[in-house]
């Protein structure tokens, strides 16, 4: 297993190299003059030229790519923001915790709620309970985040006053955005759990478990759910990866200093270095989540485990 993880981590290196080259090249060919952003429209051509020379923008593609990689690998330096002048690494580090915490809480919320709804409807298929669960799931998937966020805010912050409406800092600030982001994932996971459970629940080994005299609830959980987990893990992993990329709308509604908002602001402000660094960090996190998903597969299914070793 350890060997497998080490192998997978090593395999991340070429993936990352690819990401670096693609992201850098995209930024390279994007039209627009960074010096204009830094110095403003009132600057003279001489000033801008001097800055270009200074930033190395006049160098060739390979020279700049080489410099970028060198700085990244040996100094962990992603360059400075064109807009604020702050190091990109620091900017991302400041924004990452909010997004990461929210993603973890959302995915936990989504998995718990989604699996409960999915199991309930799979155990009693085509009944009222099933219909209610699946309608809830559909509503969850369909509800736009910004709207749901506002509704939650209205109820829990304005009417009841239980939770803060905006900002970031305490655990209370995380709850509403996490629920907002997690609801649609919960809906997707509920549908996935239901279909996966329905496939498993008629399997022969479920009858074997019943024939042992096992209680129905334990049959469903121990024998059914564990076998139905793989597709659920896949879905939850994908949702988690997407959340780590930042939930722009939700972060905007709740005024959270997250990665998604940073990225969107940087794109519209043509803050190339921040976009570049942000995309890279998100790609790394996505790869790590994929690895986590593969490890969870092995945990859930011994057949996968033996194929790894």
């Amino acid at each position: 297993m350890l060997k497998f993880i080490a192998k997978r981590l090593l395999m991340m290196i070429p993936v990352m190299a690819g990401v670096i080259v693609i992201v850098f090249s995209m930024m390279y060919i994007t039209p627009g003059d960074p010096t204009m952003i830094i110095l403003g429209e009132t600057s003279t051509e001489e000033e801008r030229e001097a800055l270009r020379e200074d930033l190395g923008l006049n160098d060739g593609y390979f020279k700049r790519l080489g410099d970028f990689c060198y700085n990244l690998i040996f100094k962990l330096d992603l360059g400075d923001s064109y807009v604020t002048g702050q190091p990109v690494m620091d900017t991302i580090k400041a924004r990452l915790p909010a997004t990461a915490t929210m993603a973890v809480v959302s995915v936990a919320f989504a998995v718990i709620l989604g699996m409960i709804l999915g199991i309930v409807s799979a155990v009693k298929p085509y009944t009222l309970l099933d219909n209610v669960s699946m309608t809830l799931a559909l509503v969850g998937v369909s509800m736009p985040n910004f709207w749901q966020g506002l509704l939650l805010m209205l109820l829990f912050s304005v009417k009841l006053g239980w939770l803060p409406a905006t900002g970031y800092g305490t655990w209370k600030h995380i709850i509403l955005p996490a629920i907002t982001v997690g609801t649609s994932s919960a809906g997707i996971i509920a549908r996935m759990t239901r279909s996966s459970m329905l496939e498993v629940i008629n399997a022969d080994y479920i009858n074997t478990a019943r024939a042992k005299g096992q209680k129905e609830i334990i049959v469903v959980i121990r024998h059914g759910l564990r076998n139905a987990l793989i597709p659920v893990i896949t879905t939850a992993g994908l949702q988690f990866g997407a959340m780590l990329g930042g939930a722009v709308l939700t972060e905007t509604v709740f005024a959270m200093p997250g990665l998604g908002k940073l990225m969107v602001d940087s794109v519209s402000g043509r803050d190339y270095t921040v976009v570049q660094g942000g995309v890279l960090v998100i790609a790394i996190m996505f790869s790590l989540v994929n690895l986590l998903v593969d490890i969870l597969y092995a945990y859930a299914d011994p057949r996968v485990r033996s194929s790894y070793s």
């Binding site: 399997a203 022969d204 024939a211 042992k212 005299g213």
Partner: peptide, 20 residues
């Protein structure tokens, strides 16, 4: 079930729980 009457199933490839 399991103590007074028990059952052996037809297909051993599918009647055992693959994750236990």
């Amino acid at each position: 079930r399991g103590s007074k009457i028990s059952m052996i199933f037809q297909d051993p490839m599918t009647s055992l729980n693959p994750v236990m």
